[in-house]
Each structure stands twice: as structure tokens, then as C-alpha cells.
Computed example of a mutant assay.
Amino acid sequence: MSPKLTMIAIILGAAAVVLSMSTYVVDQREQALVLQFGNPKAVVQDAGLHFKPPWQSIVTFDKRLLESDVPPNEVITKDKKSIMVDSYARWRITEPLQVYQVARTQTGVKARMDDVVRGKVREVLGQHTLHEIVSGGEKEDLRVALMKSIRDRADAGVQEFGITVIDVRIKRADLPQENSEAVFQRMKAERGRIAKEYRSEGEEAAREIRAEAEKIQKTLLAEAYKKSEIVRGKADAESTAIYAKAYNRDAQFYSFTRSLEAYRNAIGTDTRLVISPDSEFFRFFEQSRK
């Protein structure tokens, strides 16, 4: 290659390098900060191809809505209860220059914003009781108001960082592990107390039912005994009347049949009686020999 062509190639190569160092592209999802020897010179938010001197550098920041998962935060409520609050925040970089001046990078400003959000969560929730935080208390929109208050205070606290907090939400609020165990034991004791009350009430009801059943049983038995005695009395009266009628018709025959019945009941196959032969019991035997 001739010296002339070599020189042209060198010039073109140098021009290409200078051109590459003088141009940059801003993505539609980003915004750029132009630096000259570390000092901010301009903020570029328009997407597309842009030009700059070769000695300047570019730092890009995200333009989209960002989400930050804030680490769990211990909060002391108004009624002195300790809870672990897990929250997240949505935010956006609005002033890249301020972000660079405060934290240099997007990651650095995110860490500062997380600190502010945690502080505002403790500040707002600390003004309310655990019942109000968990269930909303007597106001239906209390939890919405709490989230709005945290967002507004956090947004006011990060204005100097060049960002805007769009929203703050609580994912969950749990008691610390040691508190959870204590609450579980209290719940267990409370359920045991309620179960004991139910058992006591059941035993009392059972005793009342048994007492009532025994009372009804005694009443029925007494009534049945009364009726049976009345029937037995009537039957005895009827049998006595029949015996009396039979006796009046033939007293001698009646005595004879009663004696035979007595012999049948008193004297068995192997029965031995030690009795005088002339006793009244054998008087019909004496009569038969005569």
C-alpha cells in the first residue's frame, strides 16, 4: 500500500474513533447525564442519536417506573406492640442531575430512598394501634389513608434526591417470632378456657337432664305402682268376694278343697312331716277313716 493510501486509512480510522467518541444514543427507556471531567454539563431526556465532544462521558439513568422491595422494618405501634412490616415502593427518577450529585448512581439513590421509606413507615404506623393497622379499626378507609400518608411523607423526604415516590404499599405485617409464640400461647390458653367453659356448661346441662329424667322416672314408677296397687286391691277384693261366695254356698266342701290344695303345696314326693296325727291339718284323713 502506498504512503498516501496508508495516510488516508489512518485519517479515516481516526475520524471513525473521534466520531464514535462524539456520538451516543439515548434509549427511549433512559435519560442521560453528560459529564465533562466528572462535572455535569447537560441532561438529555430525548431518545435518539446525540453528539458531544470526545472528552465528555455519559451516565444513564432509568426513566421508567421503578419498584423497590424495602427490607422488613420493625415498627412500635401506639399501643406499644412490636410488628415487622414488609413494604415496597414505586418510584421514578425525575432529576438525573440531583441523583448524580447526591448518590452518583441509581443504586445509591435507591438505598437512600429505602431508608426514607422505612423511616416514614415507622413514623406513620407508630401513631396508630395494632388493631387499626391490621383491621382498619372503625374507619373503613383508614389503611388507604395510612398508605397515602406514608407515600406523601416519603415523597417529600426524597425530593432533594431528584426522585419521586409514586406509591408505597405494605405487603404484610407480622409479629416478631418471640411475640408470635407468646400470642400463640395466649390464644391456646384462651381456647382452652373457652373449651373448659363449654365442657362445664355441657356437664351442668347433662346433670339437669339426668335429674329431670330421674324425676320423670320416679314419677312414672310411682304412678305405675299406684295403679298396680289399685288393680291388685281390686283383684284381691274380687277374689275375696269369690271365696266368700263359694264358702257361703258349701262351707264344708270349701274347707275340703282348701285342705287338698294345702296338702298339694305342703307335701311333696320326698317330704317328711313331723306332726301329730290328730292335728287339725289332717282332720279330713281322720274323717275318712270313720
Rank of each mutant, 00 (worst) to 15 (best):
G38Y: 07
L125T: 02
G126M: 10
S82R: 15
A32F: 02
A89M: 04
V75C: 06
K81W: 07
Q106W: 07
P40L: 12
P72H: 01
D115A: 12
A15N: 12
G119I: 05
F61S: 00
N39P: 00
G48D: 02
G108L: 03
A103T: 06
G108A: 02
K41R: 15
D46Q: 10
V85L: 10
A111R: 12
V26P: 07
D141Y: 08
T107A: 14
V134I: 15
K63M: 04
T60F: 14
W91N: 01
L49V: 12
M21G: 12
H131A: 14
T23P: 04
L65V: 10
K63E: 05
R90D: 00
S87V: 09
E74S: 12
E140T: 12
K52D: 01
K120N: 08
S22A: 15
K81I: 13
A103N: 08
Q106Y: 09
M113I: 03
E74H: 02
K78R: 15
L97G: 04
R64F: 07
S68T: 07
A89T: 04
D46G: 05
A16F: 13
V17G: 11
I76P: 02
V59T: 09
N39V: 13
A47H: 03
S87G: 06
P54S: 15
Q31Y: 02
D86H: 10
M84H: 00
E138I: 14
R118T: 03
D46I: 03
T107D: 12
N73H: 08
T107E: 10
L142N: 10
Y88A: 07
L130P: 00
M84L: 14
S135N: 15
T94N: 05
R90M: 07
V121M: 03
V34G: 04
D62S: 14
S57H: 08
Y100H: 12
D141I: 07
A16H: 07
Q36S: 13
V25Y: 11
R143E: 04
D141F: 09
V134Y: 03
T129H: 07
N73R: 05
P71C: 00
R92E: 06
V124P: 02
K52N: 03
P53Q: 14
W55S: 13
P40W: 09
T107L: 13
R90E: 06
T77F: 09
V124T: 06
A32I: 03
R143L: 13
E132T: 14
K139W: 08
T94K: 06
R29N: 10
H131S: 14
V85F: 11
E138T: 14
L65P: 00
R64T: 13
R92H: 05
T94I: 09
S135C: 06
R90P: 00
P72V: 06
I76D: 06
K120V: 04
T94A: 04
V85T: 11
V109W: 00
K52E: 01
N39I: 12
E67V: 15
A42L: 10
H50C: 10
A103L: 09
E123P: 04
G108H: 02
T105F: 06
V102E: 02
L49I: 13
P71I: 01
A89G: 02
W55K: 10
G126V: 07
S57A: 13
W55I: 12
R122M: 08
R104A: 13
